[in-house]
Write a protein that binds this DNA or RNA. Sequence first.
DNA 1: CTGAAAGCGCTTACAG
DNA 2: CTGAAAGCGCTTACAG
Lengths: 344, 344
Amino acid sequence: MNKAVTISDVATQAGVSVSTASKALCGKGRMADETRTRIIETAVALGYRPNRAAQALSRKPMKVAALVDRGPEEVQSHLVRGLRDSFETYAAFNVDYDIFEFDPISGSAEAKKYLYDRYASLDGLIVQCDDVVTEEVNRMNEFVNIPIVTIVSDSEKIRSVSSVVINAETVGKLAAQFLAMNGAKKTVIIAGRSETYIHERNIAGYREGLETIAGGTSLLGVWYSDDDWKKAYDCTKDAFEKNPDIDGIFVTSYLAPSVCDYLKEKGLEKKVAVIGVDLYDETEKCLRDGSLNATIYQNQYLQAQNAVDVLMDCLSEGYRILPPVRVKPELVMLSNLECYTHRK
Amino acid sequence: MNKAVTISDVATQAGVSVSTASKALCGKGRMADETRTRIIETAVALGYRPNRAAQALSRKPMKVAALVDRGPEEVQSHLVRGLRDSFETYAAFNVDYDIFEFDPISGSAEAKKYLYDRYASLDGLIVQCDDVVTEEVNRMNEFVNIPIVTIVSDSEKIRSVSSVVINAETVGKLAAQFLAMNGAKKTVIIAGRSETYIHERNIAGYREGLETIAGGTSLLGVWYSDDDWKKAYDCTKDAFEKNPDIDGIFVTSYLAPSVCDYLKEKGLEKKVAVIGVDLYDETEKCLRDGSLNATIYQNQYLQAQNAVDVLMDCLSEGYRILPPVRVKPELVMLSNLECYTHRK
DNA sequence: CTGAAAGCGCTTACAG
DNA sequence: CTGAAAGCGCTTACAG
């Protein structure tokens, strides 16, 4: 390994002081265009790459924030833990972080205020949020452009950002193949909120899966639970009243336990295959008692970790926009549940 | 965020100089036991965590090596790529690394020589290797104790190490549940090398899975392919000659494509469910043509990444032995294959 | 056995 | 507009 090129090499070569070179390279302060150009050119010519450790040690703390809209406690907690853990690993890089959780129904105003108050002082932002807040983020980012990373939201709606995404179609396809494998022929979907981007894509993927992979299995209908426990139960009930011979159910939201409750009450849990989404205590119980056959874990912890990593990359590489990072959906069944139970 | 505790805080509190604190904390040089203990205790009490950026900046380059025994090209390459990528992210941390691949059959002597030549100058080591080399590593580590991280080998055989492991029983259980879900009743196992730790644990897990999860499915027998393509084919043939009504096969090694070849020749590929292990081009093809129903991917890339992370943690935390890191087996089917095809 | 001092590669007030 | 100097938190010869 050859000795790395340092900023002082660049400075000497360009005939300026280290401080001037530094300012030229990180684009701070004012200086003669000619000087800046010359410095940058010699840096490139010499193959200079800044030493991150040294940068971290000398600069003042970087300020970043994460704005997340609160989901069901146990799902959300994985996300927040992932953010926290990941930020902590960057502690050595001198970053100050703040995680702000707000209620998706009532908290939009709160989230907006948070943004107004802080945006100007932030170096980077992670958001997982609804349309209202998204709009706000877009608006602010037009004035002060900082790197933004979105977590599994309607990423198309936020401009100039990097993102962490789950392939919602794949989730649907996986569910279709799984139910077919379990011998299901007549299936239904209990979806989350109607018209939601993710759920619609889940459904589309499921349809595709039925056609391309699991011929012989059909989709009888889709019910929308609006992410409400009681309503999910009612949907299930309604579905069975209309189609008593259902033998497979795909629940696109975290409400599968509610669906399982209905099945257990009616003694149908062994006859109907059910696959859900996400993983928390209730889900685990259902996997254990056999009423839930599998769940597709959209590793929130990993999503959060990736978001932080991407943000840090953006920040240290001159605010580039990075390609989306995809988190793979993980199929959790009774046999591999133990790999997930200690997911801190 | 409170200001982080620095080594100078620790030094002041313990009533020593910064240099003494540093030496105590990274276990270098000789010093009064009493002093060292006191310093370490105050560091713990204060919640001191060394600033890695500063460490990286001040110490001379760390020398680490990875010793891996070459498996089938495409499986191995994920491992090596994972090591390389991960080491590169530590470049700013001032580490020099070397990756040494050797042939598991003929290369033990070569590997030994490599160890003799370098061991003394290394700060850390990653090994994925057979028993002979393992013995050697153990022996050397008695003289010069450096942190060692093992990747999915018979970790019990290397003492004083951290490790990255795959739960081999879970892989077996997963296979059992999967085949049962596919309606298989009479199954066989085509295993890798006989008497190999991992394969035996795969088989044990499979048996357990059949009992606890997949009642009604039976295991007719186990054939050993010795990790040889031709032999795997022959085993399959032999199995079918003895049991023409086999309807499920678990291949514990990467040789599933060979098993699928037999099935396709005999036109049995739609009637027999097959689940294999690992993922590379041949495996992908079989998933696509439907002769292979699923494979259990033991994410080598991730294993390697984790190994490097663990090693770096060991090195920066005063050579502690860290608890094993478990890599989850991932079930790959046609429906989620796309998540794996761009696995660089 | 212990400590003072230099230095790792950067950034950032501050002074010219 | 440019540079000298201090300082970030650590490690490591070197001197006591």
